[in-house]
Amino acid sequence: MTPITLEKRGHQAWITLNRPQVKNMLNGECFIGLADAWEEVRADDGIRVAVLTAAGEEHFCCGGDLGEVIPLWTGVRQPANEVEERLKADPMITDRVMLKEKPLYKPVIAAINGHALGGGTELLQATDIRIAAQHAQFSLPEPKVGIVPGAGSMVRLTRQLPWAHAMRILLGGEPVSADDALHMGLVSEVVPLAQLQARAEHYADSICRQAPLALQAIKRTALETHTLPWADAFRFEMEQAGAIMMSKDAREGPRAFKEKRQPQFTGE
């Protein structure tokens, strides 16, 4: 069974965590598979949106497979195969998996089919639109086993949520329900599990009807200006807006509106 699958559906890339028998925990093959999948999404100009989901009906991702990955990185044991050799030689792979080292400016949708614990909750913070099944839960229990959620959460969560909500998740360790996550702003929408796939498809289809360069510029500006002073942020925004105004898509949009037809955006 392939632990990470990537299926291209037209302009969409559907990435699936595929270890339901072990709660979709991230082992070495998952780290490599996810890092490679994100790079393929980034490099393929035909892909306009990525959807991240998981196999099964109970767990989205219950974090890293601590028994396999942590001892390798801490030096407790030596690599036993080619996958572990690559992990040992690339300790920064987590940054690529969590989209920290190199941001992905294409929109990413998360279809959260169940519990997201530890690394699962950390992975979600690298996505943009997050749709959760009603039974999903979220938590960062790392301090209970003597470690920290160091794959992005200690920085991202307090920037994405109000302080008190972020610290409840970071310090409390107790699971947060899907409804509470919606109230906090951790997820965008909560739906019955049976509707999750359709809602993810709805958002992905909507994104594919819009100008891809414009969407990437919007996400790039939101990410890059988040901590800049206003004057610098507005300057960056204007640079992005100016570049988009020179694109072929920026001419196609108004032309299609005037001609009362759907625009045919090409990403140029």
Rank of each mutant, 00 (worst) to 15 (best):
I4Q: 08
R9H: 13
R9D: 12
P20S: 02
P20K: 05
V22N: 13
K23W: 06
M25G: 02
M25R: 15
C30Y: 05
A35E: 11
A35W: 07
A37T: 10
G46M: 10
I47F: 08
R48W: 15
R48D: 02
A50Q: 07
V51E: 04
V51Q: 06
A54L: 09
A55K: 14
A55I: 03
G56E: 11
H59Q: 03
C61D: 13
D65R: 05
L66E: 10
V69E: 01
V69G: 01
I70D: 07
L72K: 03
T74Y: 05
V76T: 13
Q78C: 04
Q78H: 15
E82H: 09
V83M: 14
R86M: 05
R86Y: 15
A89Q: 12
A89S: 12
P91A: 05
R96N: 08
M98P: 01
M98L: 14
E101L: 14
K102F: 07
L104N: 06
A110Q: 09
I112G: 00
I112K: 02
G114S: 05
H115P: 01
L117M: 10
G119E: 07
G119W: 08
T121E: 13
L123C: 06
T127H: 10
A132C: 08
A136C: 02
L140W: 07
P141L: 02
P143K: 10
V145N: 09
P149H: 13
G150M: 12
M154E: 13
V155L: 11
V155M: 10
R159Q: 14
Q160C: 01
L161N: 13
P162N: 12
W163I: 06
H165Y: 13
H165S: 10
M167W: 11
R168S: 10
R168N: 06
L170K: 04
L171S: 09
G172C: 09
D179T: 11
D180C: 00
G185W: 15
G185F: 12
G185H: 13
L186K: 04
E189A: 01
A198Y: 13
R199T: 12
C208L: 05
A214W: 12
L215S: 03
L215F: 01
A217C: 02
K219E: 08
T227L: 14
D232T: 04
M245H: 12
K248S: 09
D249R: 07
G253K: 11
P254M: 03
P263Y: 07
T266Q: 14
